[in-house]
Amino acid sequence: MTGWLSFFQDVFEYWPQILGGLGNTLLLFAIVTVTGLIGGILVFYQALSPNRHVRRITEGYISFFIGTPLIVLLFLMYYGLPQTGIHLSPLAVAVIGFTMNVAAYNARYLMSAYNGIDASELEAARAQGFSTLQVFRLVTLPQTLRLAMPGLTNQVILNLKDSSIVFLIQYTEFFAQMQELAARNFQYFKVYLLTGLVYLLLVSLVVLAARWLERRVLPAACRT
């Protein structure tokens, strides 16, 4: 028990750095959740393009980012790009990398939701004289967003969990600070266990928020 007592003393002493790390984690999480959604909608819009080549390229984009590890993309930008004279901060690399990756996933969720919506409604909107962009904004997007909600919220949870990898490109987020703490007091097991518990807690909060959002956004008729 004294082991745990001294452990929590260590945690308490290192508290400001841990809190700073947590802040960085939440910052990255918040940014990429928003940019990933916007990016996903843009990619989705391209995927509906009447131009066959645009559609082909968009499908290639989605498939490539779903098929390659995010970490490779981050390393490419963080460790590779400087040789061309481009130096990006860890946060910038993380935001760009996550956004491209998350956008691909979100676009795929939106695509499969799109296949589930009633084609006659889109036809009706076009028949009324709405422009392509108006049909997308007023009919297609609201419906697909609703139908894709489970996938999209799941992606938000993944964003939070995956943010734990950016210490590998020197972004001092929560996990990085906890590793620093472990390196100081050598209590690896306890430190990493605590780290896991904190992520579990954060994920639980996101899950609760997501459930609340799903209840708010999904009309009864659309719920499965």
Binding site: K161, D162, F175, Q179, K190, Y192, L193, T195, G196, Y199
Partner: peptide, 13 residues
């Protein structure tokens, strides 16, 4: 739990 965190618990912890 994130994969990397669990990996560190198992391998380093």
């Amino acid at each position: 739990i994130p994969v990397l965190v669990l990996l560190f618990i198992v391998f380093f912890g």
